[in-house]
Each structure stands twice: as structure tokens, then as C-alpha cells.
Write a protein that binds this DNA or RNA. Structure first.
Lengths: 338, 338
DNA sequence: TCGGTTCGTCGAAGCGCTTCGACGGTGGTG
DNA sequence: CACCACCGTCGAAGCGCTTCGACGAACCGA
């Protein structure tokens, strides 16, 4: 492995000049630069990351803390991760992958030992214990999610409240007045991942504003849970004409169940799902859905981290506007039947 | 951030002594060690990763190269990643996440700049261009998969040929004589990911050995692809009594299709799937399956990397024995009907 | 023409750690 | 009772890079 000294010698300049060619922090004449670059190429020189980090106190690495329990949301997590890695690379950074289960200790470990310049965390809980720890770090962090007290920490997420509103507005616009919400599993509520609450309150507010009759229910995973959930919703709000489903996992069993009981989508019942696009179109009926814009969120998270790193201003709470895509699961109720 | 000098001063010893306490590479008296450790704890000292890497030429980081295109196999990939990160942590290493699409350049970048001590790659192709590049690196690498020429590089994977054999043996043992294989999509074969071929040849060999009548077909994704595939299989081998499905994505549409056409599982047709356990039990009929032991493979990959790193011997081709788990999708054909 | 800039380059001082050789002090051995 | 070996610790020399101050040369305006 050649060092910067080897390059310097080969190019007939001093090591510092090579460094300046590399960083561009000082003007270097065109000839010198060319000579240095030739030497670099010829020797196959790559600066030693550790030495660089030591001298410059920048690692060009960001930490990504992902919930790696094999869980419901795997595809979404993966999309976030992909987006983060890709975006990071576009800023010439790499990504160190941490698991959520290392908890606060993991964050402190990588931060204190100066392995990373910034941290991006996903799957935040309402009163996430990690937040106070993050505040103490010298590295900035960006959250994918919106915990209760996030003052001073940048957050990026889909605007779930607006998503709920948009779902209801869409259905109301199609003449639906009686609508059920199939929510996430009780475990999600228990875990206090805030998107569930944010969606729910948006849903309830919009329901009132639009003068709808609605009922909401969490939904246990598995066919049995879905059956129970739907039964309760049906009981509490008979003759509903539409469902909003904020539960990826429930989607498939729900459609199976509806089909088995002879309720056609969308003829008998309309559905708006909150889920990634590919899930929506992988169903027998292509679902009208509000996408979880994992790619955008991940990209913006990295961008925010970069701004933070070079001291530019950032928007500390960035909630992305939802986008509803119409597919085949919503029916327009004729005015005469409303 | 306190440095090793601060700790040394606080403990009244020299920096090198602190270092030896940390590394255990030289004997240190119990009292001194205690004093040093107290100082470390009190100051909240964490060694600077870059400095450490520079001085010791070890980073305690391994690269994980994952196919991050949002693809069919997302859950499996995720399981690999989880296992790798967890195992790496248990060896006090961290994981740098790279995407496959950075290709050879990405590997060389992190290796040459000494960001990692070893590399683990997944989703290898038959004649993967990255292999020659890997050979040139000074860091060892471990492959999850089995490309054609892997001499000198450690490989870990499920023994897909044995898996195919096991599936057929199981079915044959239950009296099935006419069996179809629903294979991966043509895209997988085209991409030359070797597991497809390995499974297929295992299948064909076992078929001959066991004297079975079999037919094999790749299967395009989507309900349409599955329908076409099944139609071809049915046409070529009428009255088959079992299917082996080596295509996660096809599973759900296949079951839908069978149900729609009134063929019950397992009464009319038996199924053995090659897929992760949770996919097998997420189906309406819990499928008898051969698990993709992603967790084990990931763990072993890391373990292998660690052995390589400290110069211990390794098994260069480690093919894990498949484990078939009986569930509800295989029927025993009574001897009278065979 | 001369002082003051600006430009392009160099030298040296670290960044924080590991590791090697050295060196007193103990304890065991012949 | 010497001698040697080993134990526990220290000091110093790097690891490969960045960055700051300095410095000659070229250039500008007055």
C-alpha cells in the first residue's frame, strides 16, 4: 500500500502538496496537480481512512441504526437502508450498520470512539430512551420518525396525520360516509412508535371535519387477528362501505377474508391502504394506496445529516406530504345512494 | 473526549500501560489494572477508532456487500444482514454496509483505504467479476453463495443440491412418483446466481436415483407467470401428485391458483417449499418446507472471517445440510394407490 | 521603483494509539 | 550467594494523514 509520501516522492513534491491536491483546500498549479494525479493513479494510492480520520477528525462514515429484528416491516426498512446507503455514497460517505438492540450503548460506542460523523436512526418510539443520549453526542443525528420530545434533533418522516386525512378525503369524495380503520397491531401501539398515533389522530380529526361515521380498531397479526378485527368493525359500524388499512401485514389476510365472505373489492367495499407501492400492486386487486416514501425519507435524512455536518441550516421537523395513488380498490358511490 | 494520555495521567501510569490494560497483550498487575480501569470508567474514555486503526492496522470493521435493489428476496437478505451484524458484534466488530451496485470499485475502495479488515459478500453470480478483484485484496473475504471458480476464497451456503434431494426423498417416501418443480424466475437463471442451478441438478439427480417421473420449469413472477408455469408442468406431467417450489414469490399465487381450480393442498396435491420458515407458516396451509438458514449462514460467514483474520484454518467450502420441516402440505399416498 | 498582495509550495507539528526494546525489581536455582 | 529469568512498567518511535505558518516568486498599483 503506497502512502502519501510515496506519491509525493514520485511526483517530486512534498506530502502536503499531495494532500492539498486531494482536498483542494489550497490552490495548486495545473502542472503540479497533473503530476500528482498521475503519481496517484500509477501507484494506486488510496488514503488510509484511519490516518485521515485521526488527522482531520472526520470519518466520512455515518451510522445507520436499523431495527433488525425480523419483523413486519422488513421491506420498508430495506428501502430506507437502500436509500440511506445510496445517498450517503453520493456524498462520499459510507454507512456503518448498527442494530437497534444495541440501544444507547451502541450509539455511544460508535460516537465516542469517533467511528462516525453523524447518526441516522429509524424506528423511534414516543419516549425513546436514546434521545437524551443522542443530545449528549458531539455528532449530529437525524431521526426517521417523530418521537415526543425531539427538540434540537432533526426528524424526517411521512406526515401520517395528513395521510389519514388524505385517505378519508379521497373516500369521502367518492361518496363514502361510513368508514372503518384497520390499524396497526396492538404491539405497535404498545411500542409507542408514533406513526400509529399520528395516523390515528389525523384520522379522527378528519372524520369529524368531514362529518363521517367512522370506527377504528387495531389489528392483531395473522388471519385470526384480521378476522376478529373486521368482525368488531362490522359490529360497531354496520353497512360500512370502505376501509382504510394502516397495516401492511393485515392486507393480504383481509383481502382473503373479504373474498371468502363474498364481499367484492371495490364493488361491495372500498379500500385505501397505507403501504409501499409494490405491496399495493402485489395484491389481487391493485390497491389505491398512500405510499410510504421510504426512498425519499432516507435520502432526505442523509441530506439533512450532511447539512448539519457542514453547519448549514436545516428544517428540524420535516414531514413529507402524502401522495395517494388511485388504483382499483375504490368505488365511486353514485350520488343517489349516498 | 479524553485520550489515552488523560487516562494514563489520571491513573498515574504511562500511556503504554493503559494500552496494555486495554489489549491484555502484556501482563499488568491487578492493582494497576484496577486503577486504570477506574480512570477509564470515570473519564468515559473510548479509544479513537482511527488512531487505533492507524497504529495497529486493524479496524475491527467488516464490510457487508448486500444486493440492495428492492428485490424478491428482501426478507432473506435482511436475515443475512441481521445475522452478520449480530455475529460481528459478538466478535467486537462493526459492519460497514455496501451495496452490490458499487461493484468491484466499492470493494477496492474500502479495502485499499483500509476501512475494513475483511469482506462478506452475498448474492454472488456464477462468474462474478468481483472474485478476481477480491483475490487481489489484502483483506480476506467470505462469500455467501458458491460461484464457479472460488478457489482460495471461503464460501458458505445452504447445500441446495442436497435440499433438492431431501425434498424429493421426502415426497418419494410419502409415495409420490410424479413430481413437478416450480423453479425460480428465468431472471434468476439468467443472472447466474448459482443456487438455482445447484438445486436443479440436485433435483434431477435425485429424480433419477429415486426413479421418479419429474418435470421442471422456471416460473415468471406474478400470478400470470405462475399460471403459465403450472399449466406447462401439468401438460408435461399429467396427474402429478406433488410440487417442489423453489420460488418464494410464486408460493402465494400458486396456492391461490390451486385453490381457485379446486385442487386442495395436500389432499389433491402435496407441496414442499424451499423458503424461510416464516414464509412457510404465513401461507393458508402451513407448508412443509426446507428452510433457508440465513441466520446460520450469516453467523458462519462472520465466524469464518474471524478465523481467517487470526490465521486459523477454515473450511473453504461450507455447505450447510438442509433441514426439512414437516407441516401440513404433504400427504402420504396409501400404498394401494401408488 | 518599491511595498504589499497573492499564488504555489514546503516543513513540521501534531492527531491518539500500539508496540518494541529497555530496565529495575523479584524470585527461583545451582 | 551469585546469576538468570521473568514480571510489570515506561519511553519513544512510529502509523499516514491534515493543516498551519512560513517563504520565495511573481504580480499589482501607486
Amino acid at each position: 500500500m503506497p502512502t502519501i509520501n510515496d506519491v509525493a516522492r514520485a511526483a517530486g513534491v512534498s506530502p502536503s502538496t499531495v494532500s492539498y491536491v486531494l482536498s483542494g483546500r489550497r490552490p495548486i498549479s495545473a502542472e503540479t496537480r497533473a503530476r500528482v494525479q498521475a503519481a496517484i493513479a500509477e501507484l494506486g494510492f488510496h488514503p488510509h481512512a484511519g490516518a485521515r480520520a485521526l488527522a482531520s477528525s472526520k470519518t466520512n462514515v455515518i451510522a445507520l441504526v436499523a431495527p433488525l429484528r425480523v419483523d413486519v416491516n422488513v421491506p420498508v426498512i430495506m428501502q430506507f437502508a437502500t436509500a440511506v446507503v445510496t445517498a450517503a455514497r453520493s456524498y462520499n460517505h459510507d454507512v456503518l450498520l448498527l442494530t437497534k438492540d444495541e440501544g444507547t450503548a451502541g450509539l455511544e460506542r460508535v460516537a465516542h470512539s469517533t467511528m462516525v460523523d453523524a447518526l441516522i436512526l429509524m424506528d423511534l418510539e414516543r419516549d425513546d430512551m436514546r434521545i437524551p443520549a443522542l443530545r449528549r453526542l458531539k455528532q449530529p443525528s437525524v431521526l426517521i420518525g417523530l418521537p415526543a420530545d425531539h427538540t434540537g434533533i432533526a426528524c424526517v418522516d411521512l406526515d401520517f396525520a395528513a395521510a389519514a386525512r388524505e385517505a378519508l378525503t379521497h373516500l369521502a369524495g367518492h361518496g363514502h360516509r361510513r368508514i372503518g380503520l384497520v390499524g396497526p397491531s396492538p404491539a405497535v401501539y404498545r411500542r409507542q412508535t408514533t406513526y400509529a398515533d399520528r395516523f390515528l389522530s389525523g384520522f379522527l380529526e378528519a372524520s369529524t371535519e368531514l362529518g363521517l361515521r367512522t370506527v377504528t380498531h387495531p389489528c392483531e397479526p395473522g388471519a385470526e387477528g384480521v378476522r376478529a378485527c373486521l368482525a368488531e368493525i362490522d359490529a360497531e359500524l354496520p353497512a360500512l362501505s370502505a376501509l382504510v388499512v394502516h397495516n401492511e401485514e393485515a392486507l393480504r389476510p383481509l383481502l382473503d377474508l373479504l373474498q371468502a365472505s363474498g364481499r367484492r373489492v371495490p364493488e361491495d367495499i372500498s379500500i385505501v391502504a397505507i403501504c409501499p407501492r409494490d405491496v399495493a400492486i402485489s395484491m389481487p386487486v391493485h390497491l389505491t394506496s398512500i405510499d410510504i416514501p421510504a426512498h425519499d425519507v432516507g435520502t432526505i435524512a442523509v441530506e439533512t445529516a450532511m447539512r448539519l455536518l457542514d453547519g448549514r441550516s436545516v428544517e428540524y421537523t420535516r414531514l413529507l406530504a402524502p401522495g395517494l395513488v388511485e388504483r382499483d380498490s375504490c368505488r365511486e358511490i353514485p350520488p343517489s345512494h349516498r
